[in-house]
Design a protein around this nucleic acid. Structure first.
Length: 424
RNA sequence: GUGGAUGUAGCUCAGUUGGCUAGAGCGCAGGAUUGUGGCUCCUGAGGCCGUGGGUUCAAGCCCCAUCAUCCACCCCA
Protein backbone atom coordinates (compact mmCIF):
# COMPACT_ATOMS: atom_id res chain seq x y z
CA UNK A 1 0.00 0.00 0.00
CA UNK A 2 1.14 3.43 -0.87
CA UNK A 3 -0.65 5.39 1.81
CA UNK A 4 -1.08 4.95 5.53
CA UNK A 5 -3.24 7.01 7.78
CA UNK A 6 -0.91 9.51 9.47
CA UNK A 7 0.82 8.23 12.58
CA UNK A 8 -1.40 8.25 15.62
CA UNK A 9 -4.64 8.46 13.65
CA UNK A 10 -7.20 5.72 13.20
CA UNK A 11 -9.98 4.78 10.88
CA UNK A 12 -13.09 3.88 12.80
CA UNK A 13 -14.72 1.13 10.79
CA UNK A 14 -17.86 -0.92 11.18
CA UNK A 15 -18.69 -2.72 13.35
CA UNK A 16 -16.59 -0.65 15.79
CA UNK A 17 -18.40 2.52 14.72
CA UNK A 18 -21.58 1.16 16.29
CA UNK A 19 -20.01 1.57 19.70
CA UNK A 20 -19.15 5.18 18.96
CA UNK A 21 -22.68 5.91 17.86
CA UNK A 22 -24.04 4.27 20.97
CA UNK A 23 -21.70 6.23 23.24
CA UNK A 24 -22.69 9.46 21.53
CA UNK A 25 -26.36 8.62 21.81
CA UNK A 26 -26.14 7.92 25.54
CA UNK A 27 -24.02 11.00 26.08
CA UNK A 28 -26.50 13.32 24.39
CA UNK A 29 -29.29 11.84 26.41
CA UNK A 30 -27.59 11.95 29.79
CA UNK A 31 -26.04 15.39 29.38
CA UNK A 32 -29.34 16.89 28.33
CA UNK A 33 -30.88 15.23 31.33
CA UNK A 34 -28.45 17.28 33.46
CA UNK A 35 -29.47 20.32 31.40
CA UNK A 36 -26.23 20.73 29.51
CA UNK A 37 -26.48 21.91 25.91
CA UNK A 38 -24.27 20.91 23.05
CA UNK A 39 -21.81 23.42 21.63
CA UNK A 40 -19.65 22.93 18.54
CA UNK A 41 -16.58 25.08 18.22
CA UNK A 42 -14.02 25.05 15.39
CA UNK A 43 -11.50 22.24 15.12
CA UNK A 44 -8.76 24.88 14.82
CA UNK A 45 -8.21 28.18 16.54
CA UNK A 46 -5.60 30.90 16.52
CA UNK A 47 -2.55 29.56 18.28
CA UNK A 48 -2.49 32.38 20.83
CA UNK A 49 -5.75 31.14 22.33
CA UNK A 50 -4.12 27.93 23.50
CA UNK A 51 -0.86 29.62 24.43
CA UNK A 52 -2.70 32.04 26.68
CA UNK A 53 -5.35 29.64 27.89
CA UNK A 54 -3.43 26.46 28.53
CA UNK A 55 -0.19 28.16 29.52
CA UNK A 56 3.16 28.70 27.83
CA UNK A 57 5.17 26.33 29.96
CA UNK A 58 2.82 23.37 29.73
CA UNK A 59 3.78 20.26 27.78
CA UNK A 60 0.84 20.74 25.49
CA UNK A 61 1.90 24.17 24.35
CA UNK A 62 5.62 23.50 24.41
CA UNK A 63 5.71 20.35 22.34
CA UNK A 64 2.37 18.79 21.59
CA UNK A 65 0.47 21.23 19.41
CA UNK A 66 -0.29 20.82 15.75
CA UNK A 67 0.57 24.34 14.71
CA UNK A 68 0.90 25.71 11.19
CA UNK A 69 0.57 28.91 9.26
CA UNK A 70 -2.38 29.44 7.01
CA UNK A 71 -2.09 31.25 3.68
CA UNK A 72 -2.38 34.65 5.28
CA UNK A 73 0.46 33.86 7.64
CA UNK A 74 -1.67 33.50 10.76
CA UNK A 75 -0.61 30.85 13.21
CA UNK A 76 -3.29 28.21 13.46
CA UNK A 77 -3.45 25.27 15.87
CA UNK A 78 -5.57 22.15 15.77
CA UNK A 79 -7.33 22.13 19.11
CA UNK A 80 -5.51 20.04 21.72
CA UNK A 81 -8.43 20.27 24.14
CA UNK A 82 -11.89 21.77 24.31
CA UNK A 83 -12.11 24.14 27.23
CA UNK A 84 -10.21 27.12 25.84
CA UNK A 85 -12.41 27.14 22.73
CA UNK A 86 -15.62 26.91 24.72
CA UNK A 87 -14.64 29.82 26.95
CA UNK A 88 -13.51 31.81 23.92
CA UNK A 89 -16.89 31.18 22.36
CA UNK A 90 -18.71 32.07 25.57
CA UNK A 91 -16.91 35.40 25.68
CA UNK A 92 -17.02 36.13 21.96
CA UNK A 93 -20.76 35.50 21.76
CA UNK A 94 -21.36 37.42 24.96
CA UNK A 95 -23.22 34.56 26.52
CA UNK A 96 -22.45 36.13 29.90
CA UNK A 97 -25.24 38.55 29.11
CA UNK A 98 -27.76 35.75 29.39
CA UNK A 99 -29.07 34.04 32.51
CA UNK A 100 -26.33 32.10 34.25
CA UNK A 101 -24.85 29.60 34.81
CA UNK A 102 -24.20 28.29 31.31
CA UNK A 103 -23.86 24.56 30.94
CA UNK A 104 -22.32 23.26 27.72
CA UNK A 105 -21.07 19.93 26.45
CA UNK A 106 -19.11 18.92 23.38
CA UNK A 107 -17.99 15.79 21.55
CA UNK A 108 -15.27 15.75 18.97
CA UNK A 109 -11.69 15.16 17.87
CA UNK A 110 -8.67 16.70 19.58
CA UNK A 111 -5.08 16.74 18.36
CA UNK A 112 -1.79 16.40 20.14
CA UNK A 113 1.57 15.67 18.60
CA UNK A 114 2.84 12.83 20.76
CA UNK A 115 4.27 9.38 20.27
CA UNK A 116 1.24 7.12 20.16
CA UNK A 117 0.82 4.23 22.56
CA UNK A 118 -1.97 2.38 24.27
CA UNK A 119 -4.71 4.90 25.02
CA UNK A 120 -2.91 7.77 23.33
CA UNK A 121 -3.25 9.02 19.80
CA UNK A 122 -2.49 12.12 17.80
CA UNK A 123 -6.09 12.48 16.79
CA UNK A 124 -8.26 11.34 19.65
CA UNK A 125 -11.76 12.08 20.79
CA UNK A 126 -13.12 13.72 23.85
CA UNK A 127 -16.49 14.40 25.18
CA UNK A 128 -16.62 17.04 27.83
CA UNK A 129 -18.73 19.46 29.79
CA UNK A 130 -18.21 23.00 30.98
CA UNK A 131 -20.30 24.76 33.61
CA UNK A 132 -19.57 28.46 33.40
CA UNK A 133 -20.23 31.46 35.64
CA UNK A 134 -20.86 29.81 38.96
CA UNK A 135 -18.48 29.16 41.79
CA UNK A 136 -20.80 26.86 43.67
CA UNK A 137 -18.98 23.78 44.99
CA UNK A 138 -22.19 21.84 44.35
CA UNK A 139 -21.50 22.39 40.69
CA UNK A 140 -18.06 20.84 41.09
CA UNK A 141 -19.81 17.82 42.54
CA UNK A 142 -22.38 17.82 39.76
CA UNK A 143 -19.66 17.79 37.11
CA UNK A 144 -17.79 14.93 38.76
CA UNK A 145 -20.94 12.93 39.33
CA UNK A 146 -22.06 13.49 35.76
CA UNK A 147 -18.88 11.89 34.50
CA UNK A 148 -19.26 8.99 36.86
CA UNK A 149 -22.92 8.47 36.00
CA UNK A 150 -21.96 8.37 32.35
CA UNK A 151 -19.46 5.61 33.00
CA UNK A 152 -22.10 3.77 34.99
CA UNK A 153 -24.44 3.94 32.00
CA UNK A 154 -21.94 1.75 30.21
CA UNK A 155 -21.62 -0.66 33.08
CA UNK A 156 -18.31 0.71 34.36
CA UNK A 157 -18.03 0.91 38.11
CA UNK A 158 -14.57 -0.21 38.98
CA UNK A 159 -12.50 2.95 38.98
CA UNK A 160 -10.81 5.44 41.29
CA UNK A 161 -11.71 9.09 41.69
CA UNK A 162 -8.68 11.13 42.68
CA UNK A 163 -9.47 14.52 44.11
CA UNK A 164 -7.33 17.50 44.98
CA UNK A 165 -7.39 21.24 45.29
CA UNK A 166 -4.64 23.08 43.52
CA UNK A 167 -5.39 26.36 45.27
CA UNK A 168 -6.01 29.74 43.76
CA UNK A 169 -4.20 32.91 42.77
CA UNK A 170 -3.67 33.90 46.33
CA UNK A 171 -2.54 30.66 47.96
CA UNK A 172 -0.89 28.71 45.19
CA UNK A 173 2.09 31.09 44.67
CA UNK A 174 2.85 30.93 48.37
CA UNK A 175 2.72 27.17 48.31
CA UNK A 176 4.90 27.06 45.22
CA UNK A 177 7.55 29.05 47.02
CA UNK A 178 7.49 26.64 49.94
CA UNK A 179 7.68 23.72 47.58
CA UNK A 180 10.56 25.30 45.69
CA UNK A 181 12.50 25.87 48.86
CA UNK A 182 11.92 22.32 49.93
CA UNK A 183 12.88 20.89 46.56
CA UNK A 184 15.99 23.02 46.34
CA UNK A 185 17.06 21.68 49.72
CA UNK A 186 16.66 18.15 48.41
CA UNK A 187 17.88 18.86 44.91
CA UNK A 188 20.63 16.27 45.13
CA UNK A 189 18.10 13.44 45.43
CA UNK A 190 16.02 14.49 42.42
CA UNK A 191 16.29 13.22 38.87
CA UNK A 192 17.74 15.53 36.23
CA UNK A 193 14.38 16.47 34.84
CA UNK A 194 12.99 17.37 38.23
CA UNK A 195 16.03 19.52 38.93
CA UNK A 196 15.00 21.61 35.97
CA UNK A 197 11.39 21.60 37.06
CA UNK A 198 12.13 23.28 40.35
CA UNK A 199 12.28 26.63 38.62
CA UNK A 200 10.05 26.08 35.63
CA UNK A 201 7.15 24.13 37.07
CA UNK A 202 7.74 22.76 40.57
CA UNK A 203 4.26 21.20 40.81
CA UNK A 204 5.27 18.80 38.09
CA UNK A 205 7.83 17.23 40.40
CA UNK A 206 4.97 15.93 42.49
CA UNK A 207 3.90 13.33 39.97
CA UNK A 208 7.32 12.26 38.86
CA UNK A 209 7.48 8.47 38.97
CA UNK A 210 11.20 8.28 39.56
CA UNK A 211 11.84 6.36 42.79
CA UNK A 212 14.30 8.72 44.40
CA UNK A 213 12.01 11.64 43.53
CA UNK A 214 9.11 9.81 45.10
CA UNK A 215 11.09 9.44 48.29
CA UNK A 216 11.66 13.19 48.41
CA UNK A 217 8.08 14.01 47.51
CA UNK A 218 6.79 11.93 50.38
CA UNK A 219 7.99 14.56 52.81
CA UNK A 220 7.24 17.55 50.62
CA UNK A 221 4.79 20.18 51.83
CA UNK A 222 1.29 19.28 50.71
CA UNK A 223 -0.86 21.80 48.91
CA UNK A 224 -3.90 20.63 50.83
CA UNK A 225 -2.21 21.91 53.97
CA UNK A 226 -1.46 25.31 52.47
CA UNK A 227 -4.80 26.34 51.06
CA UNK A 228 -6.19 29.74 51.86
CA UNK A 229 -9.42 29.95 53.80
CA UNK A 230 -11.57 30.29 50.72
CA UNK A 231 -9.97 27.35 48.94
CA UNK A 232 -10.10 25.26 52.06
CA UNK A 233 -13.80 25.91 52.42
CA UNK A 234 -14.53 25.28 48.76
CA UNK A 235 -12.62 22.02 48.84
CA UNK A 236 -14.42 20.71 51.92
CA UNK A 237 -17.77 21.71 50.47
CA UNK A 238 -17.04 19.81 47.27
CA UNK A 239 -16.25 16.78 49.37
CA UNK A 240 -19.41 17.04 51.38
CA UNK A 241 -21.53 17.33 48.24
CA UNK A 242 -19.83 14.25 46.87
CA UNK A 243 -20.58 12.52 50.16
CA UNK A 244 -24.24 13.38 49.72
CA UNK A 245 -24.15 11.52 46.40
CA UNK A 246 -22.29 8.59 47.93
CA UNK A 247 -19.43 9.09 45.53
CA UNK A 248 -16.18 7.75 46.88
CA UNK A 249 -12.94 9.60 46.31
CA UNK A 250 -9.30 9.51 47.19
CA UNK A 251 -7.76 12.78 48.32
CA UNK A 252 -4.55 12.95 46.36
CA UNK A 253 -2.42 16.01 47.16
CA UNK A 254 0.01 14.91 44.48
CA UNK A 255 -2.57 15.23 41.73
CA UNK A 256 -1.42 18.06 39.51
CA UNK A 257 -2.76 18.62 36.09
CA UNK A 258 -0.92 19.58 32.97
CA UNK A 259 -2.84 22.69 32.14
CA UNK A 260 -2.16 25.97 33.88
CA UNK A 261 -5.71 27.17 34.07
CA UNK A 262 -6.86 24.92 36.88
CA UNK A 263 -7.74 26.43 40.25
CA UNK A 264 -9.40 24.88 43.28
CA UNK A 265 -10.80 21.50 42.40
CA UNK A 266 -8.82 19.06 40.28
CA UNK A 267 -9.83 15.47 39.69
CA UNK A 268 -9.08 12.41 37.62
CA UNK A 269 -10.89 9.14 37.13
CA UNK A 270 -8.47 6.28 36.73
CA UNK A 271 -9.12 2.77 35.56
CA UNK A 272 -6.32 0.56 36.78
CA UNK A 273 -7.11 -2.07 34.20
CA UNK A 274 -5.83 0.27 31.52
CA UNK A 275 -2.04 0.28 31.66
CA UNK A 276 0.07 3.41 31.61
CA UNK A 277 -2.47 5.86 30.21
CA UNK A 278 -5.21 5.12 32.67
CA UNK A 279 -7.03 8.42 33.11
CA UNK A 280 -10.46 7.98 31.57
CA UNK A 281 -11.57 11.46 32.40
CA UNK A 282 -10.17 14.42 34.22
CA UNK A 283 -10.87 18.04 34.83
CA UNK A 284 -11.28 20.74 37.37
CA UNK A 285 -12.16 24.30 38.09
CA UNK A 286 -10.60 27.05 35.99
CA UNK A 287 -11.57 30.32 37.55
CA UNK A 288 -8.69 32.21 35.97
CA UNK A 289 -9.20 31.16 32.38
CA UNK A 290 -11.75 33.74 31.23
CA UNK A 291 -9.59 36.43 32.78
CA UNK A 292 -6.58 35.13 30.88
CA UNK A 293 -8.18 35.04 27.46
CA UNK A 294 -10.90 37.68 27.76
CA UNK A 295 -10.26 40.00 30.70
CA UNK A 296 -13.42 38.93 32.42
CA UNK A 297 -13.52 37.32 35.81
CA UNK A 298 -15.83 34.41 35.14
CA UNK A 299 -15.43 31.08 36.94
CA UNK A 300 -15.92 27.70 35.33
CA UNK A 301 -15.50 23.99 35.85
CA UNK A 302 -15.51 21.02 33.53
CA UNK A 303 -14.13 17.66 32.59
CA UNK A 304 -13.01 15.92 29.44
CA UNK A 305 -13.35 12.21 28.86
CA UNK A 306 -11.27 10.24 26.37
CA UNK A 307 -13.57 8.19 24.20
CA UNK A 308 -10.80 5.84 23.09
CA UNK A 309 -9.96 5.22 26.74
CA UNK A 310 -13.58 4.59 27.59
CA UNK A 311 -13.61 2.01 24.82
CA UNK A 312 -10.40 0.42 26.14
CA UNK A 313 -11.91 0.28 29.58
CA UNK A 314 -14.99 -1.49 28.24
CA UNK A 315 -12.78 -3.88 26.35
CA UNK A 316 -10.68 -4.64 29.42
CA UNK A 317 -13.83 -5.62 31.26
CA UNK A 318 -15.31 -7.43 28.30
CA UNK A 319 -18.39 -5.26 28.34
CA UNK A 320 -20.35 -5.32 25.11
CA UNK A 321 -22.37 -2.17 24.67
CA UNK A 322 -23.84 -3.02 21.28
CA UNK A 323 -25.38 -6.18 19.92
CA UNK A 324 -24.73 -7.14 16.33
CA UNK A 325 -27.80 -6.09 14.42
CA UNK A 326 -29.19 -8.13 11.55
CA UNK A 327 -31.37 -7.11 8.63
CA UNK A 328 -35.09 -7.71 8.31
CA UNK A 329 -35.29 -9.04 4.78
CA UNK A 330 -33.02 -10.37 2.09
CA UNK A 331 -34.36 -10.67 -1.42
CA UNK A 332 -33.05 -13.68 -3.33
CA UNK A 333 -33.41 -13.34 -7.07
CA UNK A 334 -33.47 -16.14 -9.61
CA UNK A 335 -33.20 -15.14 -13.22
CA UNK A 336 -32.90 -11.80 -14.98
CA UNK A 337 -36.61 -11.18 -15.37
CA UNK A 338 -37.13 -11.55 -11.67
CA UNK A 339 -34.46 -9.01 -10.87
CA UNK A 340 -36.55 -6.07 -12.09
CA UNK A 341 -39.54 -7.19 -10.05
CA UNK A 342 -37.30 -7.81 -7.06
CA UNK A 343 -35.71 -4.40 -7.39
CA UNK A 344 -39.13 -2.76 -7.44
CA UNK A 345 -40.11 -4.72 -4.36
CA UNK A 346 -36.87 -3.75 -2.62
CA UNK A 347 -37.78 -0.09 -2.97
CA UNK A 348 -41.29 -0.64 -1.65
CA UNK A 349 -40.06 -2.59 1.36
CA UNK A 350 -37.47 0.02 2.19
CA UNK A 351 -40.04 2.77 2.00
CA UNK A 352 -41.95 0.79 4.60
CA UNK A 353 -38.77 0.84 6.71
CA UNK A 354 -37.89 -2.79 6.43
CA UNK A 355 -34.12 -3.11 6.56
CA UNK A 356 -33.72 -4.91 3.27
CA UNK A 357 -30.85 -6.09 1.09
CA UNK A 358 -30.46 -7.71 -2.33
CA UNK A 359 -27.61 -9.38 -4.22
CA UNK A 360 -25.41 -7.19 -6.41
CA UNK A 361 -22.82 -9.75 -7.41
CA UNK A 362 -24.91 -12.05 -9.61
CA UNK A 363 -24.50 -14.90 -7.24
CA UNK A 364 -26.11 -18.30 -7.27
CA UNK A 365 -29.18 -18.97 -5.20
CA UNK A 366 -27.13 -20.89 -2.69
CA UNK A 367 -24.74 -18.01 -2.34
CA UNK A 368 -27.55 -15.54 -1.99
CA UNK A 369 -28.99 -17.61 0.83
CA UNK A 370 -25.57 -17.71 2.38
CA UNK A 371 -25.38 -13.92 2.21
CA UNK A 372 -28.80 -13.65 3.80
CA UNK A 373 -27.62 -15.93 6.56
CA UNK A 374 -24.47 -13.93 7.11
CA UNK A 375 -26.42 -10.70 7.31
CA UNK A 376 -28.59 -12.34 9.89
CA UNK A 377 -31.73 -11.76 7.87
CA UNK A 378 -34.95 -12.57 9.62
CA UNK A 379 -36.68 -13.51 6.38
CA UNK A 380 -35.58 -14.20 2.85
CA UNK A 381 -37.94 -13.30 0.04
CA UNK A 382 -37.36 -15.50 -2.99
CA UNK A 383 -38.45 -14.36 -6.43
CA UNK A 384 -37.94 -16.60 -9.48
CA UNK A 385 -39.80 -17.72 -12.58
CA UNK A 386 -42.36 -19.68 -10.59
CA UNK A 387 -43.18 -16.75 -8.40
CA UNK A 388 -43.31 -14.36 -11.34
CA UNK A 389 -45.87 -16.57 -13.04
CA UNK A 390 -47.97 -16.69 -9.89
CA UNK A 391 -47.58 -13.00 -9.05
CA UNK A 392 -46.16 -14.10 -5.74
CA UNK A 393 -43.03 -14.41 -3.66
CA UNK A 394 -41.74 -17.20 -1.48
CA UNK A 395 -40.87 -16.10 1.99
CA UNK A 396 -38.55 -18.12 4.15
CA UNK A 397 -38.14 -17.71 7.87
CA UNK A 398 -34.41 -18.06 8.33
CA UNK A 399 -34.62 -19.32 11.85
CA UNK A 400 -37.23 -22.02 11.40
CA UNK A 401 -36.70 -22.68 7.72
CA UNK A 402 -40.46 -22.54 7.13
CA UNK A 403 -41.54 -21.27 3.75
CA UNK A 404 -44.76 -19.91 2.33
CA UNK A 405 -45.79 -18.55 -1.03
CA UNK A 406 -47.49 -15.18 -0.69
CA UNK A 407 -49.29 -13.13 -3.31
CA UNK A 408 -47.39 -9.92 -4.03
CA UNK A 409 -50.53 -7.94 -3.24
CA UNK A 410 -50.51 -9.36 0.28
CA UNK A 411 -46.79 -9.31 0.82
CA UNK A 412 -46.49 -5.98 2.61
CA UNK A 413 -49.27 -6.77 5.03
CA UNK A 414 -47.86 -10.24 5.64
CA UNK A 415 -44.35 -8.99 6.33
CA UNK A 416 -45.60 -6.27 8.63
CA UNK A 417 -47.25 -8.95 10.71
CA UNK A 418 -44.25 -11.19 10.76
CA UNK A 419 -41.28 -8.86 11.07
CA UNK A 420 -40.58 -6.88 14.19
CA UNK A 421 -38.93 -3.91 12.57
CA UNK A 422 -36.13 -2.08 14.35
CA UNK A 423 -36.27 -4.50 17.23
CA UNK A 424 -33.82 -3.84 20.02
C1' G B 1 12.21 13.67 21.75
C1' U B 2 14.29 8.72 24.16
C1' G B 3 14.15 3.35 24.81
C1' G B 4 12.34 -1.76 23.78
C1' A B 5 9.57 -5.33 20.78
C1' U B 6 7.43 -6.68 16.15
C1' G B 7 6.71 -6.54 10.50
C1' U B 8 5.35 -13.61 6.10
C1' A B 9 -2.17 -14.43 2.59
C1' G B 10 -8.04 -10.35 4.38
C1' C B 11 -7.13 -12.10 9.96
C1' U B 12 -4.14 -15.11 13.68
C1' C B 13 0.36 -17.19 13.08
C1' A B 14 4.20 -21.56 11.50
C1' G B 15 8.63 -21.51 8.56
C1' U B 16 14.81 -26.13 11.18
C1' U B 17 22.18 -24.50 11.48
C1' G B 18 20.64 -19.91 4.96
C1' G B 19 19.01 -24.90 0.41
C1' C B 20 13.93 -26.72 -4.62
C1' U B 21 7.49 -24.10 -7.29
C1' A B 22 6.65 -20.20 0.90
C1' G B 23 2.69 -23.22 4.64
C1' A B 24 -1.59 -23.96 8.34
C1' G B 25 -6.15 -22.53 10.68
C1' C B 26 -9.95 -19.07 10.15
C1' G B 27 -12.22 -15.96 6.53
C1' C B 28 -13.48 -15.29 1.21
C1' A B 29 -15.19 -17.48 -3.70
C1' G B 30 -17.15 -21.76 -6.47
C1' G B 31 -19.10 -26.66 -6.30
C1' A B 32 -21.37 -31.36 -4.11
C1' U B 33 -27.52 -29.54 -4.12
C1' U B 34 -29.56 -27.48 -12.85
C1' G B 35 -34.35 -22.83 -7.20
C1' U B 36 -32.54 -22.58 -0.94
C1' G B 37 -28.34 -20.51 4.36
C1' G B 38 -26.26 -22.89 9.00
C1' C B 39 -23.34 -28.83 9.50
C1' U B 40 -20.06 -31.74 6.37
C1' C B 41 -16.91 -32.66 2.17
C1' C B 42 -14.25 -31.11 -2.36
C1' U B 43 -11.97 -27.24 -5.21
C1' G B 44 -10.05 -22.42 -5.88
C1' A B 45 -8.37 -17.32 -5.53
C1' G B 46 -5.24 -14.55 -2.71
C1' G B 47 2.08 -13.32 -1.00
C1' C B 48 7.49 -8.06 -4.27
C1' C B 49 8.03 -12.56 3.18
C1' G B 50 7.26 -3.88 5.24
C1' U B 51 10.90 -1.13 1.82
C1' G B 52 16.02 -0.30 -0.04
C1' G B 53 20.86 -1.91 -0.09
C1' G B 54 24.72 -5.59 1.29
C1' U B 55 27.02 -10.66 2.30
C1' U B 56 26.54 -15.51 -0.30
C1' C B 57 26.67 -20.29 -5.49
C1' A B 58 21.95 -19.51 -2.82
C1' A B 59 18.39 -14.89 1.77
C1' G B 60 11.66 -15.13 4.53
C1' C B 61 16.09 -16.52 7.67
C1' C B 62 22.53 -13.20 8.28
C1' C B 63 24.33 -7.64 8.17
C1' C B 64 23.21 -2.25 7.45
C1' A B 65 19.75 1.49 6.60
C1' U B 66 14.84 3.10 6.34
C1' C B 67 9.56 3.09 7.11
C1' A B 68 5.41 1.42 9.84
C1' U B 69 2.92 -0.66 14.05
C1' C B 70 2.78 -1.89 19.19
C1' C B 71 4.53 -1.03 24.22
C1' A B 72 7.01 2.04 27.73
C1' C B 73 9.41 6.90 29.35
C1' C B 74 7.88 12.17 29.36
C1' C B 75 2.89 13.90 29.99
C1' C B 76 -2.01 13.45 29.60
C1' A B 77 -7.86 12.14 27.52
Amino acid sequence: MKFNAPRGTNDILPPEIEKWQYIEEITHKLFKNYNYQEIRTPIFEYTELFQRGIGEVTDIVEKEMYTFEDKSGRSITLRPEGTASVIRSFLENKIYGQAQPTKYYYIGPMFRYERPQSGRFRQFHQLGVEAIASNDPALDAEIISLGIRLLEKFGLEDFELHLNSVGCKSCRPKYMEKLKTFLTKNKAELCDKCKERIERNPLRVLDCKNQSCQAVIKDAPKITEHLCEECELHFSEVQSFLDVLNIEYIINPLLVRGLDYYTHTAFEIKDNALGAQNTVFGGGRYNGLAEEIGNRDIPGIGFALGIERLLLSLQAKEINIVEAEGIDLYITVIGEKAKKEAFRLLDILRKEEFKTEIDYLDRSVGSQMKSADRMNAEYTIIIGENELNNNSATIRNMKSGNEAEIKLSNLLKEMKQRVDKGEK
